Computed example of a mutant assay.
Amino acid sequence: MLKIISNQDFDTFAQNAKDAPRKRSHHNLHEQLDAGVQRLFISTEPETYMRPHRHSEEHKWELFLVLKGQLDLLIFDDEGNVTERHSLSPETNRAIEIPPGTWHGYACMQSGTVGLEIKEGAYIPTPQEDFAPWSPAEGEDGANDYRDWMSTAQPNTK
């Protein structure tokens, strides 16, 4: 079955993120959580917090494409220092593939941002040990401050 995603769908995805308490929304293309390849649109707003994490399984790479708006990808070392920052947007870098075991997080830089994430499945919720221990959990005290810091953090800062 063909799956066609229109510009109207992008507008709907963006509105869903604006309306969501976490200020982000997912639209899965894969029909089962145990699908061998996970394909999903992720819509985000600048108020969302995407906590730094890693995918520790050797086969869990992540390909992320920004189709509308802008996300900045931050890469961290094991101590929480920013080692790289990459702008992802239709005007800069469209896509990035993150290797397994890499600490990373995203800062949404523009309202209405829509990206496409592709990764090997099956879907398994991120285990606690794969969330960065030097970053606050979503909803904890300091999470909004950390999100704001991520929006401007540059390499060689913690």
Rank of each mutant, 00 (worst) to 15 (best):
Q8S: 13
K3L: 14
M50K: 12
H26T: 11
S151K: 13
N156Q: 13
R94V: 14
E31K: 13
W61S: 15
D11Y: 00
G139S: 08
M1A: 15
L88T: 01
W149I: 07
Q15K: 12
Q70T: 15
A153E: 01
S43A: 15
A17V: 08
E138S: 14
A95M: 11
T44N: 08
L71K: 11
D130K: 07
L88C: 02
D130F: 04
S135I: 02
F131L: 14
H30K: 05
W134K: 02
R54V: 07
A137Y: 11
P52Y: 06
H104N: 10
N81I: 09
L71G: 02
S6P: 05
A35R: 03
F10T: 04
H55F: 04
L33N: 15
H86C: 12
P125K: 02
L2E: 13
G142M: 07
F10C: 11
D34S: 13
I42D: 06
Q8C: 04
L29D: 02
C108D: 04
A17E: 01
H30F: 04
A122R: 11
P155T: 00
N144K: 13
K60P: 02
G142Y: 06
L116H: 07
K18Y: 10
K68V: 09
P125N: 07
E45M: 10
E84D: 15
Y49L: 03
I4A: 11
K3F: 10
G105M: 02
P52T: 06
L67C: 04
A153Y: 01
E62M: 08
D72W: 04
R22I: 04
I42L: 14
H55V: 05
F76K: 02
L71S: 09
P125E: 10
L88A: 01
S135H: 06
P52A: 11
Q15R: 13
W103T: 05
E62I: 09
S151L: 08
G115H: 00
E45S: 01
W149Q: 00
S135Q: 05
P133D: 03
E58Y: 11
E57V: 10
T83I: 15
G112A: 03
Q154R: 09
G36K: 11
I124R: 13
D141M: 12
V37P: 01
F64R: 07
S25I: 03
D130I: 09
G112R: 03
F13L: 06
E62W: 06
L74R: 00
L88D: 01
D141C: 08
F13M: 12
T102G: 08
S111R: 10
Y146L: 03
S6D: 11
G139Y: 09
S56Y: 07
T48Y: 04
G121L: 06
N28G: 07
I98D: 00
T102M: 13
Y106W: 12
A17H: 01
D9N: 15
D19N: 14
T92D: 15
A137E: 12
D145V: 04
R51D: 04
I5M: 07
T126D: 08
Q8E: 14
Q32M: 10
P100H: 09
E57L: 14
